[in-house]
Every structure is written in structure tokens, then in C-alpha cells.
């Protein structure tokens, strides 16, 4: 398992996440795609950490996970609030703020 392969996998996962955000209209699935992107970044961090023999990457990955937890909690709370208001989690229906 060389560094190049790890980075390729990480890039591929990140792209899948980007495509998920671009293609899906369900707010929850979009949040899931964001999680995939964060994970892709984590994989790259840990691969580098192993390659360079320094634990810093692992600690950064730990922080990314914590941020992901905070992001998921707030994001899902917003989705819940939107659902109460609109009875839908489709992001296309959230066009009231534009004119």
C-alpha cells in the first residue's frame, strides 16, 4: 500500500462526495456526502501521517472527526427545523430567500 494509492483512493472518495452534493436534492443525503468528503480528507491525513512517521496527521484527523460530529448535529437540527416548516427536505424547495 503505497502513498500514491492511498491518495488516489482519498481523491476518488472526495469526488464521490462532491458529486453527491451536486447531484442529490435530499438535504440528508447531501449531509452524508459532506461526511464522505471529510472522511476522504481524514484518509489522506492518516496516510501522510504514516508516511512521514509523525503523529500530527492522526491528531488532525481526530479534530476533523470532532468537527464532523458538531457539523452533523447542527446540520441535522436545521434539516429537522426545515422539515417541520416545509414537510420536505428537498433543497430545491428552499427558494423563499431568493427573488
Amino acid at each position: 500500500m503505497s502513498l500514491v494509492w492511498m491518495l488516489t483512493l482519498s481523491t476518488a472518495l472526495f469526488t464521490v462526495g462532491v458529486l453527491g452534493v451536486l447531484l442529490r436534492r435530499n438535504a440528508i443525503v447531501i449531509l452524508m456526502a459532506v461526511e464522505i468528503m471529510l472522511n476522504a480528507a481524514n484518509l489522506a491525513l492518516i496516510a501522510f501521517s504514516r508516511h512521514l512517521g509523525s503523529a500530527d496527521g492522526q491528531i488532525l484527523a481526530f479534530f476533523v472527526m470532532t468537527v464532523a460530529a458538531a457539523e452533523a448535529a447542527v446540520g441535522l437540527a436545521i434539516v429537522l427545523a426545515i422539515f417541520r416548516l416545509r414537510k420536505s427536505v428537498n433543497v430545491d424547495s428552499l427558494n423563499r430567500m431568493k427573488w
Binding site: 481524514n42 492518516i46 496516510a47 504514516r50 492522526q58 484527523a61 472527526m65 464532523a68 452533523a72
Partner: peptide, 19 residues
């Protein structure tokens, strides 16, 4: 495999188990 067992355990507990 990348010798980060602690992060792996956190990944399962935090990501899979909570988020």
C-alpha cells in the same frame, strides 16, 4: 493498516456509532 488503531476505534465509535 496505517498503524492508527486509536483513530480506527474512534472512527467506529464516533462515526459509525454516533453520527
Amino acid at each position: 493498516l496505517l498503524s492508527a488503531p486509536f483513530i480506527a476505534a474512534l472512527q467506529v465509535i464516533l462515526y459509525a456509532g454516533a453520527i
